[in-house]
Nucleic acid binder design. Sequence first.
DNA 1: ACATCTTATGCAAAAAAATGCATATTTATT
DNA 2: AATAAATATGCATTTTTTTGCATAAGATGT
Lengths: 183, 183
Amino acid sequence: MALAHAIMTALIEDDLSGYELSRDFTTSLGFFWNASHQQIYQELRKLSEKGWLNKREVSQSGKPNKIVYGLTAAGRDALSEWVFGTTRTQAAKDELLVKLYNLDVSNVAHITAEISERREGMMQLLYLYETIRRRHYAEPASLPARRKGVYLALAFGINQGEHFLSWCDQALELLSGMESVEK
Amino acid sequence: MALAHAIMTALIEDDLSGYELSRDFTTSLGFFWNASHQQIYQELRKLSEKGWLNKREVSQSGKPNKIVYGLTAAGRDALSEWVFGTTRTQAAKDELLVKLYNLDVSNVAHITAEISERREGMMQLLYLYETIRRRHYAEPASLPARRKGVYLALAFGINQGEHFLSWCDQALELLSGMESVEK
DNA sequence: ACATCTTATGCAAAAAAATGCATATTTATT
DNA sequence: AATAAATATGCATTTTTTTGCATAAGATGT
């Protein structure tokens, strides 16, 4: 019941089509909860059937028409209620860490490469985060309530990303020591 | 195909029963990949059918007998191969961050409480991590290959945990400002 | 006309994960 | 003898997620 609430959250301020949601889910809220377009369309159908979303077709020029979804009063109520429920803390599952339990002279080069790739990817993500922060969240204390929350999520991403970089450096250093021993 | 490899990873050095695996999955590898006992028993069955694990019943005194699983040669090969595959980077899905996008004067107290709870939980986890590090990983550079990997996973957990604490503090400060405005 | 790209929506099936239920052995306690 | 707790294993169902496939409108280029 989590994707449902992520989608409704994305619709708090703007009505969006499945396609637009799908695109937004590669940024913003999608940084913290993403889904494929197939999942999104399915969930939109379920939420409409439940009466939590309404839909209307919107004509577009130069593009195929789209179906735009918006929160109903019932949907808003359900979302507000959901916030008050308890969140089960789920350990972040990361295959890379499982792989580290398999570390070995035979695979150290591969694992090193994977960490480097991840580091590179995180650098790019952090650059994006920082751009967003500078442009939209320069003064968090003076933001309206909801935007403060969004800012904190962004700050979480930045914080975690920076930690990840420093961990990568630490890991790469220890692993490079291993490789030299191997030779 | 991820739990399968986590289970096989747990069996690299020791043969274990489903019950023991289930217990270990609340610590160690379980810090980074956990599963319920139901999932574990099912996966053990599948892996046995595939020929990646063998099983034998072990009599115990004072307890019911147990069924102990161990990696077969084929299982070891499959696991080694798996390490060389590419890991899809999955964004950590965290409901708390989705909730932050719903931040509002009506729920700021609840979200503040949830963050405090999480902070407390992380403090305890970090204490556990640090205990393990001090006891088993005091000198990472001199560890054998595989243990270095395990150490790096632990270091990841510690690093991430510490940054989570600092984020919580930042969040709680910003939120406390909100609450005073609300009054 | 034809191919290709972006926009746009969806079904169906398979795999993975979560949830609820069910059972059995042994020890310790009342 | 009955009850409870820890140890130990598993099935069945539902939910969630992933993957593969399929379609179509409109724009642009050849």
